[in-house]
Amino acid sequence: MTLNDTITPDGEHVPAVRVPHARRMSRLLPGRIDQLAPVIMLVVLTAAFSMLNDQFMTADNWRTIANQAAIPMVLAVGLTFVILTGSIDLSAEGVMASTSICVSLMLANSLNSNDLGLVAVAGGIAIGAVFGLVNGLLYTRLRLPSLIVTLGTWFIGLGIASYVFPDQQPVVRDRSFRSWALGEWFGVSRLVTIAVLVVVAGAVLLRYTRIGRHVYGIGGAEDLMRLAGIRVDTYKTLAFVIAGALAGLAGLMATAQLGVGNANAGADRLFPALSAVVLGGTHLAGGRGGVLQSVLGVLVLVVLGNGMILSGVGPYVQQAVVGAVIIVAVVATGWGARDRLRVVK
């Protein structure tokens, strides 16, 4: 009997299938192609679009690209944590909707006399974190697939947003809050700075802290982490809390951009962020990838979208292209890991 054996619930012994180590190794060895793919994609797209269009390679356009990338980056960083553990979080759009409405009603606005300023901002992040906490607890305590839990909370978030939504759209009147989106630092919206800070924080967290390292370990071999006495459920929940808090932050950023509390603040945000994480090379099975890869993924998607617009392709076709790109990317990265007896559902 070996460590990899399984004991079925009624105690009978099921020895593990012995995968020859040569093959196991090749499966685990990250192919260089894997890591380079997003970089190559980015370079090829940039080169292609600059040849196709004079406006692409201009400082103005790159500023636009940076501004467009800010919110997806924040979402993608959060998702990366969850996906690295091997789980999934679909709730971002619901969280963003709830945050947007709630925060716009807490800030100085057109509908009530609140003016909570930074407290409201903290509240927005806290709302997201609570969503994440609920996701994590439902997932780890009830032992439900994260896909289902977060599908449920996605819609719960949307529902809460429409329930809280007053008769009129609340217009945010807090100038300093709006200046996050309208003001500029380094020639780009301040939101870009926020996004960069989030990315740096995420990267540091993953590389230099126990939380980050355990997130990797759980994605790599959850069972062995448990055997080593690590509180796997706690760290999984933490990953969801991080993702939720960042979705809350993304909701704030969207609200600052829109200037109103909007139940559609998160609409069509999840899919690009998820695509970016996967395109960047973070594996859905967990344990491989990282925040910086996800940033590359975001840039690939934003450059693709931006370049297509400059080339006169409509936004709708773009959405279709992104859908196709994600399927191709997932198929391409997973092609080497196919196996006769692998079970993927």
């Binding site: 070996t2 460590l3 990899n4 790599g220 062995l224 080593a228 344990g287 491989r288």
Partner: peptide
Amino acid sequence: FQEQSLVPNL
């Protein structure tokens, strides 16, 4: 352990 208990991606 015979089949090892090392976490492969750490």
